[in-house]
Computed example of a mutant assay.
Amino acid sequence: MSQTRPEAAPGAVLVGVDTGQPHPDSTLGELRELALSAGLLPSASLWSARRRLDPALYIGSGKVAELKQQVLDSQASCVLFDNPLSPVQQRNLERELGVSVWDRTALILEIFARRARSGEGKLQVELARLRHAATRLVRGWTHLERQQGGIGLRGGPGEKQIELDRRMLEDKIKILQVRLHKLERQRSTQRRARARAGQLRVSIVGYTNAGKSTLFNALTHAHGYVADQLFATLDTTTRRVFLAPGSFAVVSDTVGFIRDLPHSLVDAFKATLDETVEADVLLHVVDLSNEQREQQIEQVNSVLAEIGAKDIPQILIYNKIDKLQAPVPFTDRYGAHAGFGGRDSIKSFDVSALTGAGLDTVRAYLAGLVARSEADTNPTFHI
């Protein structure tokens, strides 16, 4: 009796465009990881360098013809752009290529929709997707707009359809905002209670797949979901952690960041990210084995600034030392050449969240922060 074989993942052609500035991912490695996380199988790729972007097709008719041939040869079912596309460009490309076309924002939203597990996470992702969909309504009904409503009447059914769709989206967005606001108030109440208790509040942040959830599990002895993929977990989890006899901290694991994280997601996840804004200390997890680690640190800091958390003290946790062939010298670390004043200006630890190497030192340092604050009437935690 033959076994049923699983269906192959849909194929996807990856497209990157150099617009005159150095592309942060010229090998499209991260786009490939995003595609795999969305359940797609990268089957081909196209690279284009353009000084001026085509307002209708983004990459121009010549490259579109080349791209279409790649779609046919690889039998791909969609095309993924590592760059943002306008609604008109997306519609025109789909018409020319005959397959679905996603830009980076749409791809990240799709991954978030697949990974959301909690009720709050699903609400947040749905809100972000609706906000993104609202921007896609522009000229979405052009074929109907050309139809006139009758003699002496301006406009037509196309305009009416756009307004109906826009109103429907706005109504759904308002409903989700009210529901999320209630959850935000609950989180705020919990945070105030922890603040009154004077407990050290630690938030784990970092680029996606840097090992945040693995570190959280190791510190808290939790059993949260961990996988070697982008955005493996989306839901914020908070646990009380034993640091030393009589010394405890409250640690929160948050959603990972990524280059060009859609603003709609940042806004939708505001209640979740407030755990970071209200923290006393940030454990900024960095994949030390990743050659793009400095750029990833900058991207995380950019999002932290966007949500109002840039001034919260950070501790750099250089993770995945178990994957290194040789130690990374200090001169190749973040801040060594950026005027941060040397190693002592940014506290850092080398660890392996997977094997546990170096974690005792991190716990001891956090316990020291708690000990130094116990004499204060209003506990403050100074790094």
Rank of each mutant, 00 (worst) to 15 (best):
M1Y: 05
P10T: 12
G11A: 02
G11H: 08
G16Y: 08
G16D: 11
V17N: 03
P22L: 10
S26H: 09
S26G: 11
T27N: 12
T27K: 13
R32Y: 11
R32S: 14
E33P: 12
L34T: 00
A35V: 10
L36I: 12
G39P: 00
G39F: 11
S43R: 14
A44I: 08
L46M: 15
W47Y: 13
A49D: 03
P55E: 10
K63W: 10
A65C: 11
K68C: 10
Q69M: 12
Q70P: 01
S74C: 12
Q75K: 12
P84F: 07
Q90V: 13
Q90H: 09
N92I: 12
G98A: 14
V99Q: 13
V101I: 00
R104E: 05
L109Q: 09
A113E: 03
R114F: 13
R114W: 08
K122P: 03
Q124S: 02
V125C: 01
L127V: 02
L130A: 15
T135Y: 02
V138F: 04
H143A: 08
H143L: 09
L144E: 04
Q147F: 07
G149T: 00
G156K: 06
G156D: 00
P157Y: 14
P157D: 08
P157I: 04
G158C: 10
I162M: 03
D165W: 03
R166M: 05
R167L: 02
D171S: 13
D171F: 09
D171K: 12
K172C: 01
K174V: 01
K174M: 08
I175D: 15
R185N: 07
S188W: 11
Q190V: 00
R196T: 06
Q199M: 13
G206C: 06
G206R: 02
G211K: 12
G211Y: 11
K212D: 09
L215I: 14
L215T: 05
N217T: 13
N217G: 11
L219I: 05
T220A: 14
V226R: 03
D235G: 08
T236E: 04
R240I: 01
R240F: 02
R240M: 09
P245F: 05
G246M: 03
F248T: 15
D253P: 06
G256S: 04
G256M: 04
P262M: 11
S264Q: 14
T272H: 00
D274N: 14
A279V: 06
H284P: 06
H284C: 00
V285T: 00
L288A: 14
E291G: 12
E294Q: 14
N301I: 07
V303C: 11
L304Y: 01
A305T: 08
I307W: 01
D311Y: 04
P313L: 01
L316M: 14
K320A: 04
K320E: 08
I321F: 10
D322M: 09
L324I: 04
Q325L: 14
T331H: 10
R333A: 01
A336S: 10
A338W: 05
G339D: 06
G342K: 06
I346C: 09
F349E: 12
L354Q: 07
G358Y: 00
D360V: 03
T361Y: 02
L366E: 13
A367P: 05
G368M: 09
L369M: 05
V370H: 00
V370T: 07
A371L: 09
A371V: 13
R372A: 15
E374K: 14
F381P: 06
F381Q: 07
